[in-house]
């Protein structure tokens, strides 16, 4: 279980981007994190993997609390897919990029290859293995970035605007693919239809605060969504 208790993140200028957030995400549960621009979605996701340091509060993954010493374990179990795949794909070809994480885990080369092949197969992009990230379409880059995280074999997946840069067809493909992945997922998105398609729970953020947490029916509450700037 991914547990977040009273999490607060402040920027250097004192602005509170995440303010006392508390919720849990069960294994295999899919939750959409929605909110207007600047609501704190990306900051929250970054804090959950220790890229940003929390001012107060606790993040725990299957009983392991996020502290400096446990960063490696947390990042092995919680994979973050960045909003822009270009930020995530930095190796000369997709195979090397997907292998980057497993190699950092110190795995033997045979195991690394097995994991890379499995991740690429799962997403149906085995043919991209030796292609340069510079020569891929937006959809291919997105799937490659997800494969790079899947190869770490995390228990939970965090997605930051996964539909950004995707056309409607690629978006549908992504929704289908996400529904197949067994991991617990927290999906930050502006696309309410995508949230409805992929998640059974909705978390609504406004000005860094969690203002609603409920079932998918929340997406039909226009007044609530409008008051949150959506």
């Amino acid at each position: 279980m991914l547990e977040i208790k009273d999490l607060t993140v402040e920027y250097a200028d004192g602005k509170r981007a995440v303010d006392g957030i508390r919720f849990t995400l069960g294994a295999g549960e899919n939750a959409a994190l929605i909110g207007a621009n600047g609501a704190g979605k990306t900051t929250l996701l970054h804090a959950l993997v220790g890229v940003l340091e929390a001012k107060t509060g606790v993040v725990a993954v299957d009983g392991v609390t996020l502290v400096k010493k446990s960063l490696c374990t947390i990042r092995k179990n919680v994979g973050l897919v960045f909003q822009n795949p270009d930020d995530q794909l930095f190796m000369p070809d997709i195979f090397e990029d997907v292998a980057f994480g497993p190699r950092n885990l110190g795995l033997a080369e045979d195991e690394v290859k097995t994991r890379v092949d499995a991740a690429l197969e799962t997403l149906g992009i085995a043919q991209l293995a030796r292609r340069s990230p510079l020569k891929l379409s937006g959809g291919e880059k997105r799937l490659s970035a997800i494969a790079a995280v899947l190869a770490m074999e995390p228990q939970y997946l965090l997605f930051d605007e996964p539909t950004a840069f995707l056309d409607p067809r690629a978006r549908r493909g992504l929704a289908e693919m996400l529904s197949v992945l067994p991991q617990g997922k927290l999906i930050a998105t502006h696309q309410l239809d995508f949230a409805a398609q992929t998640c059974s729970r909705v978390l609504l953020l406004q000005d860094g605060k969690l203002v609603a947490d409920g079932g998918i029916a929340l997406l039909g509450d226009k007044r609530l969504l409008e008051s949150a700037g959506l």
Partner: peptide
């Protein structure tokens, strides 16, 4: 951002 992505993968 790239460095953050690298750190996230160990």
């Amino acid at each position: 951002r790239i460095h953050a992505a690298m750190r996230c993968r160990g």
